[in-house]
Design a protein around this nucleic acid. Structure first.
Lengths: 204, 204
DNA sequence: TAGATTGTTAATCGATTAACAATC
DNA sequence: TAGATTGTTAATCGATTAACAATC
């Protein structure tokens, strides 16, 4: 069965909310309550979950811990994922320092830049800037599944193409472009400027 | 006429693509070409644009410069916008250093933190960390329209509520929560971890 | 048992796309 | 004029929601 992408995009929000509830001593949660927490209708939550199994009990709701574990498994969050980053400028360094990836199970294990002068520079323990020529070999030997793109807009598409040809199947793109995507490759774009520009419409 | 939010979310992508074309010497662009550039169907582009006016010429396409100007006006991008940021930790500092906002016409003109020890610390020219108690007054005297939230998850909702009560109408939230939104306030959430977690589903 | 809430189907709603007359 | 492409309507597609039997 082909599961709609919108559904997949909501699952991590469920995981996040369940983790939060898990810190309290509530053991059960209803679609009603979860929906209120996330501003999503209970019907939608039940429908979304029903794509993956029957996790609830009528009359009671969902066991928080159990549902959390199941969703983590669905999203394959029960393991560690290795990522590499390309482009070690201001933005790249900020991404490397971003405190949210590690706790979520994502490790940046390699860093690349096309500027030869940066090569060899240490970023933090165990992370040294490598030349971009080593991209494919490092990806393969270090079991890297995710590429993070932090190069200027002009070079972003080429880097994405390289990642794809090296066998990377998931790309987090910070460059302000609408990338052409390759078959079988998922891309998510992070563009705070675009987000701001879509809000000013509502301002006066 | 109520314009669908999905349409508003696409307009900045059109602006971005048009700016790019504008650097070349193409003076005209068809919905076909623009669509190829953005991986969007030509029909959708024409439909989206038709909400705001008739910008094209049959048989020729759209004048790049003209369409760009019109869209900038629609999105109110033809002026400078002032933003403030709350939470000057690792993440907050990275956001302040983010090189994409300035060129797009967004200025971070004030910085706040609840930690008294940080207050008074200079961040960059003209930007000194202020106590959060000064939030409302600074927003009003400095004509701040946008709030950028970079505090820990636990405090994010409270900060968003404060911003709302100070009259801020647009919020860019970097905290990993699903905020409750107030009436008449737009929020966009930036959460790279969520983006990664929705990609691992497709990996093996 | 009575009350509550799931899982699922069918109805609704909204967004995307195809098609084409208008016209540059 | 012939060719191309818009703007717009109607058809299609897909996602959300309402409703309710099943059942804890």
């Amino acid at each position: 069965m082909e599961i709609p992408e919108v559904v997949i995009l909501r699952l991590p929000m469920y995981v996040r909310a369940l983790k939060q509830i898990n810190k309290t001593d509530f053991k059960l949660v209803s679609s009603q309550e979860l929906g209120k927490l996330l501003s999503i209708t209970p019907a939608q939550i039940r429908k979304d979950l029903s794509y993956f199994g029957r996790f609830g009990k009528q009359g009671r709701g969902y066991n928080v811990n159990y549902l959390l574990d199941e969703l983590k498994q669905v999203l394959k969050l029960d393991k560690q994922w290795n990522a590499c980053i390309i482009g070690i400028g201001t933005l790249g360094r900020a991404i490397i320092r971003y405190p949210g990836f590690g706790p979520a199970g994502f490790d940046i294990v390699a860093a690349f830049d096309s500027n030869i002068n940066l090569v060899g520079q240490p970023i933090r323990k165990g992370l040294i800037i490598q030349p971009i020529t080593e991209l494919c070999s490092t990806i393969k030997t270090n079991n890297v599944s995710i590429g993070i793109v932090a190069v200027p807009a002009e070079n972003a598409q080429a880097v994405i193409d390289s990642l794809a040809s090296c066998g990377v199947k998931a790309i987090l793109n910070y460059a302000p472009i609408s990338p052409f995507t390759h078959n079988g490759i998922v891309i998510r774009n992070i563009d705070p400027t675009l987000a701001l520009q879509s809000m000013t419409y509502y301002l006066d």
